[in-house]
Design a protein around this nucleic acid. Structure first.
Lengths: 348, 348
DNA sequence: CTGTTAGCGCGTTCAT
DNA sequence: ATGAACGCGCTAACAG
């Protein structure tokens, strides 16, 4: 039915072994026979059987990329960058590697499931992005799985994700805390003293780090953190909208609102507008991440730019073994404060 | 080294075949032995070897999803929906299917490469999204590849992509032409007569269909299409910005600008604002797709909503054989006109 | 319901 | 530089 390596061998008048060698290009083969084989491959329209190849070689050309939400540009940009370093020549048989993006939906269970699936496929490497849930059981399970993967020879890279010590995984972690602190200090520098904060979901490390950075910023300037000024919600626009209304209800004297990320910030802006408040005239707003749409918001959003594409590309290269891992297997990736129109001096 | 099915069989005191049956759950197995096997699997921490399984069964649990640009929410939303129907129980061994998203970057060559890779892996199904290049050679090559895939038993679904007759692929095509016409007629209904159009890249079918719809709208109301009113560019914000400036330069009397998609429309809005023009006071603007950010633009964007998530989910189900293909293997998916703040009556 | 027997298609020793 | 033979780990008949 389907044409196999043996068919090609027969057509090229060589042994199957020789065809294999030509295809993998690892062994010396006479130029003349190589051409004959390639010609036969072409004529027969032969395509290598991946599973058989992977079975015999005990490894595959698959590289997994795990993301929380593929519909979110935050992850899309990273995935795209990772993948751009993984695709292209360099795979085993026939050249290309297959970068596969897996959408976990932020569920720890699905994350584990995907890792198992990748493990099954004998993936060459796995890059995990996104935050991590602060649940001891899940972390332990994840770490065990990661360790098993690295032990089996799969390269594991954490991109924009906290390190997993003892697993053999390389980590490129975002400095969420530092970025958040810098952002809050920027607002304080403008004169703000009553600053609301729309945090992400509780129980996530990213949420906690950004909030901690915010509080550190306040503390550094001797501002007492009023618990009423913090609201938790999802990392999306809708949550930001609702949270902003709630903040206003709790304390209408706030002069600035910091959001956990840019999408949330957009929701905050919408809520403020709908409440008849000007930005930044009445209330300043700031986000985090600097996604492409943030510069297009009206007014443009003050935020912390995370080098998503750069970090992704680096993670991809490390996963491919084309770049050395950072010392200790851990690197911190800093964000950059982007001051734009949505932040200004406080009213009054 | 690694634990195999045989190890599990030995531990559970059954034959390898029985273990396989338990894992695949396709054959009747006594409850008691099933439990014994499951226990052994757990104790040994066994993970199925995907390649070996795929080799023996001549098919794998891989499902490929091809997208033009994973960083673009347009594709992210579709991919997410497709994947949500593919993941979950229902795969062969052990339950889950592995949905893999492949980023083609809009390059026909990469598209073909990925299809070959997927073919190698004996993918169970492939869903292709995005537009198609109007190049005869590439289309022929694509069609040949698609035919080979379907002939090999891989289910192929085109989601938001024109049909590929004779390939056996099921197509869910967006009605770009109809949506574009409706949008333009909406503007005409408001009183606009001088309407600029920022088209996508030439040589793409999506670009052509949307432009044709726009022209059909003009024609339906007896408006002569001035060639100066159309500018081509990429499907991104930057291109929209530049194109809007160019349109204004060519004819400052335009009262409305229709963009090829929402990202382009955002660029158009930015250019108009930077030129001191009000929206819709001076110039009305409209987009296409209705991506999540469009409702957040200021003013909110009038556009044509494409049911990305719905179409993706349906494509996913068809790919899984959980929903019947439409009659003739082709369905047209209509968009819905969303009238919002960016379109109004013409000035003067 | 379960065990036995053959391959699936390829990579990789060993020879030559 | 090339060929022959074996086995990777699993599934799918076929028995019983």
């Amino acid at each position: 039915m389907t044409v196999t390596l043996a068919d090609v061998a027969a057509r090229a008048q060589v042994s199957p072994a020789t065809v294999s060698r030509v295809l993998n290009g690892n062994y010396p083969v006479a130029a003349s026979t190589r051409e004959r084989v390639l010609k036969a491959v072409d004529e027969l329209d032969y395509v290598l059987n991946g599973p058989a190849s992977a079975l015999a070689a005990a490894t595959s050309d698959l590289v997994g990329i795990l993301v929380n939400d593929i519909a979110d540009p935050f992850f899309g940009i990273m995935a795209s960058a990772i993948q751009s370093e993984i695709g292209g020549p360099g795979g085993r048989a026939g050249g290309e590697r297959l970068a596969v993006v897996c959408n976990t939906g932020g569920s720890p269970e699905r994350e584990l499931t995907y890792l198992t699936l990748l493990q099954r496929q004998r993936a060459a490497a796995v890059v995990l992005t996104g935050g991590v849930v602060e649940d001891a059981a899940h972390r332990a399970a994840m770490d065990a799985k990661l360790r098993k993967l690295t032990e089996a020879g799969t390269r594991v890279v954490l991109c924009g994700r906290p390190p997993a010590p003892g697993t053999g995984a390389v980590a490129l972690a975002f400095d969420n805390r530092g970025g958040a602190q810098e952002l809050t200090e920027h607002l304080i520098g403008l004169g703000h003293r009553r600053i609301g904060y729309v945090a992400g979901p509780e129980g996530q490390m990213t949420t906690r780090h950004r909030l901690e950075g915010h509080r550190a910023g306040l503390a550094a300037h001797g501002i007492a953190a009023d618990p009423r000024w913090v609201v938790h919600g999802r990392y999306d626009r809708q949550a930001g909208y609702e949270a902003a209304l709630e903040l206003l209800r709790r304390d209408a004297s706030l002069t600035a609102v910091v959001a956990a990320n840019d999408s949330v910030a957009l929701g905050v802006c919408a809520a403020l507008r709908d409440s008849g408040l000007g930005i930044p005239g009445d209330v300043s707003v700031a986000g985090f991440d600097d996604l492409p749409f943030s510069v297009d918001a009206v007014p443009a959003l003050t935020t912390v730019r995370l080098p998503l594409a750069e970090a992704g590309a680096r993670a991809g290269r490390i996963a491919m073994g084309r770049e050395e891992a950072p010392p200790g297997g851990i690197a911190s990736v800093r964000g950059e404060l982007m001051v734009r129109g949505s932040s200004g001096v406080p009213r009054g």
